[in-house]
Amino acid sequence: MTAPLPPGQDSPKLTETPHDLGLGRVVAEQSGERFLNKDGSFNVQRRGMGWQSISLYGALLTVPWNLFFLTMGALYLALNALFGLIYFGLGSGALSEEPLMGMGRYLACFFFSVQTFGTIGYGHVYPLSVAANTVVTVEAFVSLLGVALATGVLFARFSRPQSRILFSQVAVIAPFEGGKALMFRLINGRRSQLMNAKVEAVHTQFETLPDGRRVRRFKRLQLERAEVTLFPLAWTVVHPITQDSPYWHTTLEALREADAEIMVVFSATDEAVQQNIHARSSYKIHEFRWNHRFADLYRRTRDGHLYVDAERLHDTEAILEEVAPSLE
Protein backbone atom coordinates (compact mmCIF):
# COMPACT_ATOMS: atom_id res chain seq x y z
CA MET A 1 0.00 0.00 0.00
CA THR A 2 1.35 3.43 -0.88
CA ALA A 3 2.13 5.49 2.20
CA PRO A 4 1.48 9.26 2.10
CA LEU A 5 4.34 11.65 1.62
CA PRO A 6 5.20 13.82 4.63
CA PRO A 7 3.53 17.23 4.82
CA GLY A 8 5.61 20.25 3.96
CA GLN A 9 5.64 23.45 2.06
CA ASP A 10 3.79 24.00 -1.16
CA SER A 11 5.47 22.64 -4.26
CA PRO A 12 7.34 25.25 -6.32
CA LYS A 13 5.66 26.82 -9.29
CA LEU A 14 6.31 24.85 -12.43
CA THR A 15 8.22 26.52 -15.20
CA GLU A 16 6.43 28.19 -18.08
CA THR A 17 8.81 26.58 -20.58
CA PRO A 18 6.69 24.53 -23.03
CA HIS A 19 7.59 20.90 -22.26
CA ASP A 20 4.19 19.45 -23.18
CA LEU A 21 5.71 17.10 -25.81
CA GLY A 22 3.61 18.82 -28.48
CA LEU A 23 0.18 18.05 -26.97
CA GLY A 24 -0.88 21.70 -27.11
CA ARG A 25 -2.52 24.04 -24.61
CA VAL A 26 -6.15 23.05 -25.27
CA VAL A 27 -5.49 19.34 -24.86
CA ALA A 28 -3.32 20.00 -21.83
CA GLU A 29 -5.91 22.06 -19.98
CA GLN A 30 -9.16 20.34 -21.02
CA SER A 31 -8.28 16.65 -21.13
CA GLY A 32 -9.61 14.80 -18.09
CA GLU A 33 -7.75 11.58 -18.84
CA ARG A 34 -4.15 10.53 -18.64
CA PHE A 35 -2.25 11.77 -21.66
CA LEU A 36 -0.37 8.55 -22.38
CA ASN A 37 -1.63 5.05 -21.76
CA LYS A 38 0.76 2.46 -20.38
CA ASP A 39 1.29 1.09 -23.89
CA GLY A 40 2.26 4.55 -25.16
CA SER A 41 -0.94 5.28 -27.10
CA PHE A 42 -2.66 8.66 -26.80
CA ASN A 43 -6.10 9.13 -25.29
CA VAL A 44 -6.98 12.20 -27.36
CA GLN A 45 -8.31 11.19 -30.79
CA ARG A 46 -8.77 12.93 -34.13
CA ARG A 47 -12.16 12.92 -35.81
CA GLY A 48 -13.85 14.58 -38.78
CA MET A 49 -10.86 14.23 -41.08
CA GLY A 50 -12.72 12.28 -43.76
CA TRP A 51 -11.61 9.36 -45.84
CA GLN A 52 -8.51 11.28 -46.98
CA SER A 53 -6.91 10.52 -43.62
CA ILE A 54 -7.09 6.77 -44.24
CA SER A 55 -3.84 5.21 -45.43
CA LEU A 56 -4.26 1.58 -46.45
CA TYR A 57 -0.52 1.09 -46.64
CA GLY A 58 0.06 2.61 -43.20
CA ALA A 59 -2.76 0.55 -41.72
CA LEU A 60 -1.40 -2.69 -43.18
CA LEU A 61 2.02 -1.87 -41.72
CA THR A 62 0.75 -1.25 -38.21
CA VAL A 63 -2.13 -3.69 -37.65
CA PRO A 64 -1.44 -6.86 -35.62
CA TRP A 65 -0.23 -9.88 -37.56
CA ASN A 66 -3.45 -11.84 -37.16
CA LEU A 67 -5.51 -8.94 -38.50
CA PHE A 68 -3.00 -8.45 -41.34
CA PHE A 69 -3.33 -12.05 -42.57
CA LEU A 70 -7.08 -11.92 -42.06
CA THR A 71 -7.29 -8.77 -44.21
CA MET A 72 -5.05 -10.16 -46.95
CA GLY A 73 -6.99 -13.43 -47.00
CA ALA A 74 -10.29 -11.58 -47.22
CA LEU A 75 -9.04 -9.46 -50.14
CA TYR A 76 -7.76 -12.59 -51.90
CA LEU A 77 -11.09 -14.38 -51.56
CA ALA A 78 -13.04 -11.26 -52.52
CA LEU A 79 -11.07 -10.80 -55.76
CA ASN A 80 -11.48 -14.43 -56.75
CA ALA A 81 -15.17 -14.32 -55.88
CA LEU A 82 -15.54 -11.26 -58.10
CA PHE A 83 -13.76 -12.82 -61.08
CA GLY A 84 -15.64 -16.05 -60.51
CA LEU A 85 -18.87 -14.08 -60.75
CA ILE A 86 -17.68 -12.50 -64.01
CA TYR A 87 -16.86 -15.91 -65.50
CA PHE A 88 -20.25 -17.16 -64.32
CA GLY A 89 -21.94 -14.22 -66.05
CA LEU A 90 -20.29 -15.01 -69.38
CA GLY A 91 -22.50 -18.08 -69.79
CA SER A 92 -22.04 -21.83 -69.74
CA GLY A 93 -19.89 -21.88 -72.87
CA ALA A 94 -17.18 -19.57 -71.57
CA LEU A 95 -15.07 -22.28 -69.90
CA SER A 96 -14.43 -25.90 -70.72
CA GLU A 97 -15.38 -28.80 -68.46
CA GLU A 98 -17.73 -26.89 -66.20
CA PRO A 99 -21.22 -27.74 -64.92
CA LEU A 100 -24.04 -26.23 -66.90
CA MET A 101 -25.93 -24.44 -64.14
CA GLY A 102 -26.39 -23.67 -60.45
CA MET A 103 -23.90 -23.35 -57.60
CA GLY A 104 -21.72 -26.05 -59.08
CA ARG A 105 -20.94 -23.91 -62.12
CA TYR A 106 -20.18 -20.87 -59.96
CA LEU A 107 -17.80 -22.92 -57.81
CA ALA A 108 -16.09 -24.15 -60.97
CA CYS A 109 -15.72 -20.53 -62.10
CA PHE A 110 -14.41 -19.53 -58.67
CA PHE A 111 -11.76 -22.24 -58.55
CA PHE A 112 -10.73 -21.47 -62.13
CA SER A 113 -10.19 -17.89 -60.98
CA VAL A 114 -8.05 -19.15 -58.09
CA GLN A 115 -5.95 -21.21 -60.52
CA THR A 116 -5.56 -18.24 -62.85
CA PHE A 117 -4.78 -15.80 -60.04
CA GLY A 118 -2.08 -18.08 -58.65
CA THR A 119 -0.76 -19.09 -62.12
CA ILE A 120 -1.45 -22.71 -61.20
CA GLY A 121 -3.09 -23.79 -64.45
CA TYR A 122 -4.03 -27.47 -64.12
CA GLY A 123 -4.92 -27.49 -67.81
CA HIS A 124 -8.27 -29.33 -67.84
CA VAL A 125 -10.22 -26.05 -67.59
CA TYR A 126 -9.47 -23.24 -70.03
CA PRO A 127 -11.33 -20.29 -71.59
CA LEU A 128 -13.24 -20.93 -74.81
CA SER A 129 -14.56 -17.51 -75.83
CA VAL A 130 -12.87 -14.21 -76.61
CA ALA A 131 -14.67 -12.62 -73.67
CA ALA A 132 -13.38 -15.29 -71.29
CA ASN A 133 -9.83 -14.88 -72.59
CA THR A 134 -10.13 -11.14 -72.09
CA VAL A 135 -11.18 -11.62 -68.47
CA VAL A 136 -8.25 -14.04 -67.96
CA THR A 137 -5.89 -11.39 -69.33
CA VAL A 138 -7.26 -8.77 -66.95
CA GLU A 139 -7.11 -11.17 -63.99
CA ALA A 140 -3.53 -12.14 -64.78
CA PHE A 141 -2.56 -8.46 -64.71
CA VAL A 142 -4.45 -7.89 -61.44
CA SER A 143 -2.79 -10.96 -59.90
CA LEU A 144 0.67 -9.67 -60.83
CA LEU A 145 -0.05 -6.33 -59.15
CA GLY A 146 -1.69 -7.98 -56.14
CA VAL A 147 1.17 -10.39 -55.51
CA ALA A 148 3.74 -7.61 -55.91
CA LEU A 149 1.90 -5.31 -53.49
CA ALA A 150 1.28 -8.07 -50.93
CA THR A 151 4.93 -9.12 -51.10
CA GLY A 152 6.07 -5.52 -50.67
CA VAL A 153 3.85 -4.92 -47.65
CA LEU A 154 4.92 -8.22 -46.09
CA PHE A 155 8.59 -7.38 -46.58
CA ALA A 156 8.03 -3.87 -45.18
CA ARG A 157 6.42 -5.33 -42.07
CA PHE A 158 9.36 -7.65 -41.50
CA SER A 159 11.96 -4.96 -42.19
CA ARG A 160 10.27 -2.22 -40.16
CA PRO A 161 12.07 -1.75 -36.82
CA GLN A 162 9.75 -2.51 -33.94
CA SER A 163 10.74 -1.77 -30.40
CA ARG A 164 9.68 -3.79 -27.41
CA ILE A 165 10.69 -1.60 -24.52
CA LEU A 166 9.21 -2.92 -21.27
CA PHE A 167 8.48 -0.22 -18.70
CA SER A 168 7.95 -1.00 -15.03
CA GLN A 169 4.30 -0.80 -14.06
CA VAL A 170 5.11 1.43 -11.09
CA ALA A 171 7.55 4.17 -10.16
CA VAL A 172 9.18 4.26 -6.73
CA ILE A 173 10.38 7.02 -4.43
CA ALA A 174 13.42 5.64 -2.63
CA PRO A 175 16.54 6.85 -0.80
CA PHE A 176 19.25 8.13 -3.14
CA GLU A 177 22.61 9.66 -2.22
CA GLY A 178 21.45 11.00 1.12
CA GLY A 179 18.11 12.23 -0.19
CA LYS A 180 15.22 10.87 -2.19
CA ALA A 181 14.73 10.09 -5.85
CA LEU A 182 11.92 9.09 -8.16
CA MET A 183 12.80 5.97 -10.12
CA PHE A 184 11.32 3.79 -12.83
CA ARG A 185 13.03 1.21 -14.96
CA LEU A 186 12.85 -0.36 -18.37
CA ILE A 187 14.17 -3.38 -20.24
CA ASN A 188 14.98 -4.03 -23.86
CA GLY A 189 12.50 -6.77 -24.74
CA ARG A 190 14.24 -7.71 -28.00
CA ARG A 191 17.41 -9.73 -28.50
CA SER A 192 18.85 -7.01 -30.73
CA GLN A 193 21.20 -4.50 -29.17
CA LEU A 194 20.24 -0.83 -28.74
CA MET A 195 22.70 2.04 -28.91
CA ASN A 196 22.59 5.75 -28.00
CA ALA A 197 19.47 5.28 -25.89
CA LYS A 198 17.84 8.46 -24.57
CA VAL A 199 14.94 8.97 -22.20
CA GLU A 200 12.94 12.11 -21.44
CA ALA A 201 10.54 12.44 -18.51
CA VAL A 202 8.06 15.30 -18.23
CA HIS A 203 6.01 16.01 -15.13
CA THR A 204 2.61 17.62 -15.60
CA GLN A 205 0.00 18.82 -13.11
CA PHE A 206 -2.71 21.42 -12.67
CA GLU A 207 -1.89 24.69 -10.97
CA THR A 208 -4.46 27.09 -9.48
CA LEU A 209 -3.91 30.71 -10.48
CA PRO A 210 -4.74 33.68 -8.20
CA ASP A 211 -7.97 34.27 -10.16
CA GLY A 212 -9.11 30.72 -9.42
CA ARG A 213 -8.45 29.25 -12.87
CA ARG A 214 -6.73 25.88 -13.10
CA VAL A 215 -4.09 25.55 -15.79
CA ARG A 216 -1.86 22.62 -16.53
CA ARG A 217 1.88 23.11 -16.26
CA PHE A 218 4.72 20.99 -17.62
CA LYS A 219 8.25 20.57 -16.33
CA ARG A 220 11.00 18.40 -17.75
CA LEU A 221 12.48 16.30 -14.97
CA GLN A 222 16.22 16.47 -14.48
CA LEU A 223 17.53 12.93 -14.64
CA GLU A 224 20.65 11.54 -13.03
CA ARG A 225 21.41 10.00 -16.42
CA ALA A 226 19.33 10.84 -19.48
CA GLU A 227 21.22 8.78 -22.07
CA VAL A 228 23.42 5.71 -22.31
CA THR A 229 25.65 4.63 -25.16
CA LEU A 230 24.82 0.92 -24.84
CA PHE A 231 21.51 -0.51 -23.65
CA PRO A 232 21.73 -4.32 -23.78
CA LEU A 233 20.05 -5.16 -20.47
CA ALA A 234 18.08 -2.93 -18.08
CA TRP A 235 18.06 0.75 -17.12
CA THR A 236 16.83 2.32 -13.91
CA VAL A 237 15.99 5.96 -14.65
CA VAL A 238 16.58 8.20 -11.64
CA HIS A 239 15.20 11.68 -10.98
CA PRO A 240 16.86 13.13 -7.82
CA ILE A 241 14.34 15.07 -5.75
CA THR A 242 16.01 18.42 -5.18
CA GLN A 243 14.67 21.93 -4.64
CA ASP A 244 14.10 22.25 -8.39
CA SER A 245 11.94 19.11 -8.47
CA PRO A 246 8.11 19.32 -8.48
CA TYR A 247 8.19 16.62 -5.78
CA TRP A 248 10.15 18.73 -3.31
CA HIS A 249 8.14 19.34 -0.12
CA THR A 250 4.85 17.99 -1.41
CA THR A 251 2.45 15.19 -0.56
CA LEU A 252 0.83 12.39 -2.45
CA GLU A 253 -2.53 13.95 -1.69
CA ALA A 254 -1.46 17.26 -3.21
CA LEU A 255 -0.12 15.54 -6.32
CA ARG A 256 -3.27 13.47 -6.65
CA GLU A 257 -5.43 16.60 -6.31
CA ALA A 258 -3.33 18.28 -9.01
CA ASP A 259 -3.84 15.25 -11.34
CA ALA A 260 -0.08 14.82 -11.69
CA GLU A 261 1.35 12.54 -14.36
CA ILE A 262 4.81 11.67 -15.66
CA MET A 263 5.13 11.19 -19.42
CA VAL A 264 8.14 9.17 -20.56
CA VAL A 265 9.57 9.13 -24.08
CA PHE A 266 12.35 6.68 -25.02
CA SER A 267 14.41 6.61 -28.22
CA ALA A 268 17.39 4.57 -29.38
CA THR A 269 19.11 3.16 -32.45
CA ASP A 270 18.59 -0.52 -33.25
CA GLU A 271 22.03 -1.91 -34.03
CA ALA A 272 20.64 -4.71 -36.24
CA VAL A 273 18.84 -2.43 -38.74
CA GLN A 274 20.55 0.90 -37.95
CA GLN A 275 17.22 2.68 -37.55
CA ASN A 276 15.67 4.71 -34.76
CA ILE A 277 13.04 3.19 -32.50
CA HIS A 278 10.70 4.91 -30.06
CA ALA A 279 8.58 3.96 -27.07
CA ARG A 280 6.30 5.87 -24.70
CA SER A 281 4.64 5.31 -21.34
CA SER A 282 3.35 7.29 -18.36
CA TYR A 283 2.85 7.09 -14.61
CA LYS A 284 -0.03 8.47 -12.59
CA ILE A 285 0.21 9.10 -8.86
CA HIS A 286 -1.62 5.88 -7.96
CA GLU A 287 1.21 4.07 -9.72
CA PHE A 288 3.82 5.53 -7.36
CA ARG A 289 5.29 3.45 -4.51
CA TRP A 290 6.59 5.54 -1.63
CA ASN A 291 9.47 4.14 0.43
CA HIS A 292 9.93 1.23 -1.93
CA ARG A 293 12.87 0.13 -4.01
CA PHE A 294 13.00 -2.11 -7.02
CA ALA A 295 13.86 -5.76 -6.54
CA ASP A 296 17.17 -6.93 -7.95
CA LEU A 297 16.86 -7.91 -11.60
CA TYR A 298 20.22 -9.57 -11.97
CA ARG A 299 20.73 -13.29 -11.50
CA ARG A 300 23.49 -15.76 -12.24
CA THR A 301 23.32 -19.11 -13.93
CA ARG A 302 24.94 -22.20 -12.47
CA ASP A 303 27.90 -21.44 -14.71
CA GLY A 304 28.23 -17.99 -13.20
CA HIS A 305 26.92 -16.03 -16.18
CA LEU A 306 25.00 -12.85 -15.35
CA TYR A 307 21.49 -12.41 -16.76
CA VAL A 308 18.46 -10.16 -16.28
CA ASP A 309 15.26 -11.71 -14.97
CA ALA A 310 12.56 -9.75 -16.83
CA GLU A 311 9.82 -11.30 -14.70
CA ARG A 312 11.04 -9.16 -11.78
CA LEU A 313 10.79 -5.89 -13.72
CA HIS A 314 7.75 -4.70 -11.76
CA ASP A 315 8.71 -6.14 -8.34
CA THR A 316 9.38 -3.71 -5.49
CA GLU A 317 10.44 -4.09 -1.86
CA ALA A 318 9.36 -1.94 1.06
CA ILE A 319 12.06 0.05 2.84
CA LEU A 320 11.84 0.19 6.63
CA GLU A 321 13.25 3.38 8.14
CA GLU A 322 13.68 4.26 11.76
CA VAL A 323 12.86 7.93 11.16
CA ALA A 324 10.04 9.53 9.22
CA PRO A 325 10.89 9.81 5.51
CA SER A 326 11.49 13.20 4.01
CA LEU A 327 11.80 14.50 0.48
CA GLU A 328 14.39 17.07 1.48
Rank of each mutant, 00 (worst) to 15 (best):
V202S: 01
P175L: 12
E177M: 10
F206A: 00
T204I: 01
G179W: 05
E200V: 15
H203K: 03
L186Y: 02
F184H: 12
V199S: 10
N188W: 06
K198P: 03
R190F: 00
Q193C: 11
V153T: 08
V172N: 10
T208E: 12
E207I: 00
G152R: 02
A201Q: 02
Q205F: 00
I173D: 08
T208A: 05
F167W: 12
R157C: 00
F206H: 04
H203I: 00
A150H: 05
Q169T: 14
F155D: 08
A171N: 04
V202A: 02
K198N: 14
R157I: 00
N188D: 11
L209P: 05
P210Y: 10
Q193Y: 14
M195E: 15
A171L: 03
A156T: 02
F206P: 00
R160I: 04
V170A: 10
S163R: 05
T151K: 08
L194I: 11
N196H: 12
A171I: 02
V199E: 09
K180M: 14
L149Q: 10
R160H: 14
F158P: 01
A201C: 09
L182R: 00
S168C: 01
A150K: 05
T204D: 03
R164W: 09
S192Y: 09
F206N: 02
R185M: 03
M183C: 09
R190V: 04
V199A: 11
R164G: 06
F184D: 09
S192E: 14
F167D: 03
Q193F: 14
E177F: 06
L154P: 04
S163V: 03
Q169I: 04
A171V: 02
T204R: 06
